[in-house]
Write a protein that binds this DNA or RNA. Sequence first.
RNA 1: GCCCAGGUGGCGGAAUCGGUAGACGCAGCGGAUUCAAAAUCCGCCGCCGCAAGGUGUGGGGGUUCGAGUCCCCCCCUGGGCACCA
Length: 881
Amino acid sequence: MRRGPGRRHRAAGYNAASRLPPFPAVDMQEKYQPQDIERAAQTHWAETGAHRAHDDSDKPRYYCLSMFPYPSGKLHMGHVRNYTIGDVLARYHAMRGFNVMQPMGWDAFGLPAENAAIANGVPPAQWTYANIDHMRSQLKALGLAIDWDRELATCTPGYYRWEQWLFTRLFEKGVIYKKMATVNWDPVDQTVLANEQVIDGRGWRSGALVEKREIPMYFFRITQYADELLSGLDTLPGWPERVKTMQANWIGKSTGVRLAFKVPASDELLWVFTTRADTLMGVTFVAVAAEHPLATRAAENNPALAAFIAECKQGSVAEADMATMDKKGMDTGLKVLHPLTGEAVPVWVGNYVLMSYGEGAVMAVPAHDERDFGFAQKYGLPIKQVIAVEGEAFTTDAWAEWYGDKQRGACVNSGKYDGLGYEAAVNAIATDLEALGLGEKKTQFRLRDWGISRQRYWGCPIPIVHCDACGDVPVPADQLPVVLPEDVVPDGAGNPLNKRADFVNCACPKCGQPARRETDTMDTFVESSWYYARYACPDAGQMLDARANDWLPVDQYIGGIEHAILHLLYARFFHKLMRDEGLVASDEPFANLLTQGMVIAETFYREDASGKKTWFNPADVELCDGVHVCKADSQPVIHGGTEKMSKSKNNGVDPQALIDQYGADTARLFTMFAAPPEQSLEWSDAGVEGANRFLRRLWKTTYDHVQGGPVAAYAGGALSDAAKALRRQLHQTIQKVADDIERRKQFNTAIAANMELMNALGRLDGDDATTRAVRQEVLEGAVAMLAPIVPHISEALQAALKPGVAMAWPAVDEVALVQDELELVVQVNGKLRGQLRVPAAADKAAIEALALASEAVLKHTEGKPPKKVVVVPGRLVNIVV
RNA sequence: GCCCAGGUGGCGGAAUCGGUAGACGCAGCGGAUUCAAAAUCCGCCGCCGCAAGGUGUGGGGGUUCGAGUCCCCCCCUGGGCACCA
């Protein structure tokens, strides 16, 4: 675990008394009544400030952060899962003596508020604040150990003013710049659409065919940090490998060659980037994006080409759409000259070539690139083999895997480069190109700069003023924040801020002349890129103060795997921006990351004539004679697959009914028991009964025990074999549960181990003092081990078992763990044939002898001598005959 | 299309470093208790087989004394793909 300088101890092994004040002792009722217990416990925590994080404390710190929610209206099971995972870790560390900070806030800007406004005519601000109030009360009902004093909402000027302040600093520094970018344009609604709002190439409300349109936008120069974002992944051992892999692939560092084709009868050069310069002699055409200047020029007196280019500009800008559409192209009639051979090469326009990636042009080598191969086949373009692999035959009829294999091949049909392998060929060709001034080796990233301008109302205003004389002028710090008016109701036709004269009209901060305020707002990923730091100092009169460094980096960050790339990459990038501004001292924001698997649920919809879909909540759908129908009107609905719970697909399952019926502890226990955190979970409430049953049994067992009068936990003395075995199980369980929570982050097995422990306790008979002392020890241990998961009932049970004593994590008694005998498995030829009890101290030879003499072995070897005997200490013996 | 995960009984899942597959729980079945039911308690519960035993972790192949776990190929499901958050 990475630590700031000298401020913290290692998490493992640190075991001090809990900071939680004891719950007042009350008369224990026979029946488990979660509502009363939970209300009392939550009141007690609030009154004693039990979950407050202390900025000045000698204890080691533990900053436990769950990704803050978008206030969509009500909690769904994905939230419950996410926040319970964080709460288990927070409470566990509090029990182990850490000064824990677990804050909560609201990712409050975003598209759904505007959609709700369009649907209901309610201003996004009003809708958002009402949702926050409701969801806050739901979170409180879950009994999370949150320090509510640090709560923040990103849509408040007190928060976003600092984002605007940093924006102006970065703009002046050149980290933020302006350029043209492509967006989805709805020609009917006259508005920019999010990718989510484009369905099958049409606008979600108008049904109009979407067009690509170029507009000016502000960009963060994230590519300047590409190398550091990549190498920084190696400094994050506490991150899941899969997330690091995804980020590395996203950044996509590749080394290749940037090279140019000459445009005849001009000084112009057509640049391309390729990682396969070794195949340069196999180029049979060049493909450029529809927006490429060369294409534009060729279309000037070529109506067919102009029409094709117009067609390319239809459809969404989403990469998934670009990559799955039919590959189409058209000859421009232009030729460019091959940099090495001088041969004329035709230039095509391809709808799959992206202007925003690389040079907006690619060299095509159909023989050795699968996409080019398909394209050449379709349009009858030549395919020229320039790589050969021994023993493999090349044919232009069908693509074969090896055509694109750069490891095995060598150049052919490539003149002086024949016989060279991949690396040698790339080097030789790059050297020759360099000598001609037509190319050089280059490192390229797949990562593109981060465009943050949004043509939307409900977001953080971009603090720029447009002045005819002075250009784009950042708003000076003393004029911040640029406050977003909150009494606006968007209507779906463009950004309503454009119509607000009181917002738009202003004076230029530089020359004082009338000027126009920028009406674009920022991508909401900007707010979520630094909130984790603001929690440390939510009341600071600046963006961040020294407290941010005391708490950062976050010790444990928890959130859905769907954020593996975008949010987590942007937050890492923003942290480095803040570091370079002197606001934070660390390089990375999150030391340890737990990526929660999605809670998924079925989706159901109906489609109207225009193709518009209406989504139905699974709770309102039932299965009738094998057909899914809406309960309200008994008419069929279409099953849309199983997807992550979301507002847009209306498949969120509200936990409220669960909490009302069984209490928060049952909801928490059930959610943690259903599956390990990292695994995706298809929602079903089958089994809730079982979780509740376990809590009732735990309650009843404790009740029966305390009725016998107070007794101290076992501290020594002679024990029956049964009591000794139970104590061994208790202390094994303590070890296991600590490991499950701390290292494995797998709570379902921690719960199962406690269930087994309680089952074993139920089998221990006797009412003598020693037996009761062991029972007390086991109950104290189980209650403490379960406390992070089911905190309310644990508080009440602890108060009954040990009145007036604060809960602490139980210590492992090493002596109780010692075993005299072990049971081994006996296999013959790898098949299980019996068990064998051996002294714990027996060596391999002794075990082998015992095994060979055992009945099971004699029976299954049929007297044949063993060829080989494998002894795995503590595990098994395998006899091979 | 590309990148990343996952697939184990009727169901959720366990098996942590290649070593007893199915812990724990749900559902189901049988029994106790009850006038009856709920609740509770006890027992059974992968598949085939009377049994001995065989077989079994999405499908196919491989490595190994031994594979759910490692390697190769394929299928299916989920997440992401830069304006959902």
